[in-house]
Design a protein around this nucleic acid. Structure first.
Length: 422
RNA sequence: GGAGAGAUGCCAGAGUGGUCGAAUGGGCUCGCCUGGAAAGCGAGUGUACCGUGAAAGCGGUACCGAGGGUUCGAAUCCCUCUCUCUCCGCCA
């Protein structure tokens, strides 16, 4: 969430950002400013009353100690009325604060000035492209190649769990494991610390990274134990330092983690989501950066460059999009999407999303550092996929396929699964 | 899953109704001492919010696992929850 002090000083900027992100109802901004004023008024009032009653309580204590029971008794009578008033105010303060927080949770992060204003994916800017998309009509989509080789068992996945939960069989399972290792090892070389995280998170964590409120429908939920299955490793990994104050010298903090990801993807079926294009469970190696506020712009660029380097090493053509305001999501200030070329489907598939969240997540998580003046300050968080597996697998199968229906092992994966064919 | 114990500041640990934001020790920071270091000595060392101020600061409030209650007054008493530890059971 945004700092209410920032909103107070930048009402128009926040409203404009909200509009540009496609939010029609921007009334939350004015309401929040009003609530904040109301809240501060109440706090001032209650603080005064408490100060008075604290003074009296101390006097009573003193009188009791001196044995002046009657004087004490008289004072006790006096305190009776302010006591009720304080109770009332306490209730009012917490109610108003809750209302204010609800409003704040509904106000999206302000897009960075460098982000193009737009309404939909049509307005995203192609930031760069790498490699030559192969338009060869003979190239088959990955599901055909997989079927020929008995590599992916969608039907048994349906039987055992449901649609969107495939089995990977034999060398396909090995390929996935190889990719995970390749991605993790690359990240470690780039300075990230590997983390193995829980696959379930509690409500506070989901709130910290912004899945709650409003986006809980994307997550699977274990109601009995009040857990959510992680939709991305971003959630547990970014929350790793929740409610902590880091030392400036320790920045930037870089983590990488491989986890499965679970997403309900409610209502999305059809040819767009055929094969590995969209699943309810998939594997991903995630990158998380916790950085000094002044460094986050720079860190976003290096995050994007790093993610791009993985596609280059796999020799998969891709393009990088700078997402427009309307297509970038609630919590981000700026976001790049990396899309790999699907040579069999003749379309671009999103395989990484690199985002800067500014202090938006950090504020929700109370994730701070101590600056050179010794004051605490909110950190900035970023994350990006490095990379998401299924679509990479799809792109590999389609690009590295041979006419006989075999698939060549990409050069960089040879150390992990041998030379030749998968 | 059953039985018991516990949760206090960066750490260890005291405090069982009043002057406690909290003893003491350690750590850390600064200063003195030293050729330098160690030891020693002295001072300081939480977070958040409200108000005020250009700022340093100053005034106030809250916080001793979380939430609620009793009381003029709660770290201290009561209730609920969470977590940790020990023993038993189960188990990769």
């Amino acid at each position: 969430m945004l700092d209410i002090g920032f909103i107070r000083d930048n009402v128009e900027l926040v409203k404009e950002g909200m509009k540009n992100k496609g939010e029609n109802d921007i009334s939350a901004v004015d309401k929040a400013v009003e609530k904040d004023e109301e809240w501060r008024g109440l706090v001032t009032e209650i603080d005064q009353l408490r100060a008075e009653s604290n003074t009296k309580a101390k006097q009573i204590g003193q009188l009791m100690g001196e044995g002046k029971k009657e004087e004490a008794q008289a004072l006790i009578k006096e305190t009776g009325e302010s006591k009720g008033k304080i109770k009332e105010l306490e209730k009012a303060v917490s109610e108003v604060r809750n209302e204010l927080n609800e409003l704040l949770y509904r106000i999206p992060n302000v897009p960075d000035a460098s982000v193009p204003v737009g309404h939909s994916e049509e307005d995203n800017e192609v930031f760069s492209t790498w490699g030559e998309p192969d338009e060869n009509e003979k190239l088959k989509p990955h599901w055909e190649i997989a079927e020929q080789n008995n590599w992916i068992d969608f039907e048994r996945g349906v039987k055992v769990t449901g649609a969107g939960f495939p089995f990977y069989v034999g060398r396909m399972a090995t390929l996935q494991r190889a990719l995970i290792n390749f991605f993790i090892n690359e990240a470690i070389s780039a300075g990230y610390t590997e983390l193995q995280s829980p696959y379930f998170v509690n409500e506070d964590s989901a709130r910290g990274t912004g899945q709650i409120p409003d986006k809980e429908d994307m997550m699977y939920e274990i109601q009995r134990d009040e857990f959510f299955l992680i939709p991305t490793a971003e959630v547990p990994v970014t929350n790793f330092h929740r409610d902590e104050i880091l030392e400036e010298d320790d920045l930037p903090v870089l983590y990488t983690a491989y986890t499965p990801c679970w997403r309900r993807e409610a209502g999305s079926y059809g040819k767009e989501v055929r094969g590995l294009n969209r699943l309810h469970q998939f594997d991903k190696v995630e990158l998380v950066k916790i950085v000094h506020p002044e460094q986050s712009d720079k860190e976003l660029e290096s995050l994007r460059e790093y993610a791009e380097s993985l596609l280059q090493k796999l020799d998969l053509p891709y393009r990088t999009l700078l997402m427009c305001t309307g297509d970038m999501g609630f919590t981000q200030t700026k976001k790049y999407d990396l899309e790999v070329w699907s040579a069999g489907q003749k379309r671009w598939l999103e395989v990484s999303s690199c985002s800067n969240f500014g202090s938006f997540q950090a504020r929700r998580m109370q994730l701070r550092f101590r600056n050179e003046k010794g004051k605490t300050e909110m950190l900035h968080t970023l994350n990006g996929s490095g990379l998401a597996l299924p679509r990479i697998v799809a792109a590999i199968l389609e690009k590295y396929q041979t006419e006989e229906g075999k698939v060549q092992v990409p050069k960089v994966l040879e150390p992990y699964m041998g030379e030749g064919f998968i």
